[in-house]
Amino acid sequence: MNARGLRALSIATVASIAAGLAMVFFYAPEEASQGFLQKIFYVHVPLAIVCLCGFMAGGLMAIQHLRSGESRWDLRSYVAIHMSLIFGVGVLISGSIWAEGSWGHWWVWSSPTLVSFLIIFLLYATYQPLRFSIEDPERQARYASVFAIAAGAFVPLSYTAVQMSSSYVHPRVLGPTYDNLPGSMMLTFLVMLVGFSLLFVSLWKLEIAAKQARWQLRSLRRRLTDEPERPRRRSAAPSLEAPMPRSGPALPQPATSTAALAAGGERAIGAGAGAGAGAGATAQRQIA
């Protein structure tokens, strides 16, 4: 089950974020020029790093999905991008607050980091509409993975392009001048980074576990009530019906149960159709 380890992970998340926040307010020194306002750095930058890593992790999981064809990888990629989008909203809001506080404007075009983040966010904002507008679940998963791979590669590319295009006026707390942070600020920043990474991973696992539990509940209920399968409602979320039998030691299903038989039959039919199509293609080739 995916929920394994979730409790320990949640405790670690709460502990590290609590410790991080305590360090932000009581341990890290106030920055000379920006004063108290600079504290938002400890939220904004870790959020942004975790969010971008989440986008790229979604791309890697999508590669795994296309290679293996297992829809659980599609679910993982979907949830990673979904979570990163939520984190991304947090990045844009905290970035705007920081910009208003230190430059007096809610939005600053001269900050390449913020601008490239916005472009990446706008690109990923089309991920859910793309999924939603493809009805066939198999095709939806495949196209979404293709999108996730291209968009994941776009993340570093857009950063380079926007960095090249702008003059460097952003207060570069991170990046080339990474090592001029005093030790106490660096330590606080790292604790917050760990905290937000753990938060991302716990939320990611939680959503996957919740989705799987919901699907298991639904299939069990169907088995109990013998009601016919309702047509799938159109949704941007991946369909979980395919990976259920594959998820290893999830449910000890009795071999005589109709659901297991049906699933097995379906797979057999699918394999047969695949083989048929393959044979057809070979025949075509030979005719040609």
């Binding site: 472009i119 990446i120 706008l122 690109l123 089309t126 509409p129 793309l130 999108f147 291209a150 776009f154 590319l157 857009s158 392009a161 926007v162």
Partner: peptide, 10 residues
């Protein structure tokens, strides 16, 4: 166009 425009920003 929604997907293409961000990709075409560079």
């Amino acid at each position: 166009p929604l997907i293409a425009l961000p990709l075409l920003v560079p």
